[in-house]
Simulated scan of single mutants.
Amino acid sequence: MSSPDEAEAPEPGIARRPVEVATAAILIGLAGLVLWDSYGRGAGWDGGPQNGFFPARVGWLFLAAALFILFQSFRSENQVFVTWRQLAQVVRVLGPLVLFVALIAPLGLYVAAAIFIVVFMGVIATARWWSILLTAVLVPLACFWIFELQFRVPLPKGPLEAALGY
Rank of each mutant, 00 (worst) to 15 (best):
S2F: 06
D5A: 04
P10C: 11
P10S: 11
P10D: 14
E11K: 11
P12G: 02
G13V: 12
V19R: 10
V21D: 02
T23Q: 10
L27K: 08
I28E: 00
I28S: 04
L30A: 13
L30P: 01
A31W: 02
G32K: 05
V34H: 00
W36Q: 08
W36Y: 14
D37A: 10
G48C: 07
P49E: 02
N51W: 02
R57A: 13
R57M: 12
V58A: 14
V58F: 06
L61G: 15
A65K: 07
A66S: 15
F68L: 15
F71G: 14
Q72T: 14
F74K: 04
Q79M: 06
V80Q: 02
F81S: 12
F81C: 04
T83E: 03
W84D: 06
V90L: 12
R92A: 01
V93K: 00
V93T: 13
V93Q: 01
V101Y: 08
A102D: 12
I104P: 02
L109M: 10
Y110A: 01
V111L: 09
A112N: 08
F116M: 10
I117G: 00
F120L: 05
G122I: 03
V123N: 09
I124W: 11
I124C: 10
A125D: 15
R128I: 10
W129C: 07
W129I: 15
W129E: 14
W130C: 04
L134Q: 04
L134N: 05
L138C: 12
P140L: 01
F147E: 04
Q150M: 05
Q150T: 02
P156C: 09
L160P: 07
E161S: 02
A162P: 06
L164W: 01
L164S: 01
G165I: 03
G165Y: 03
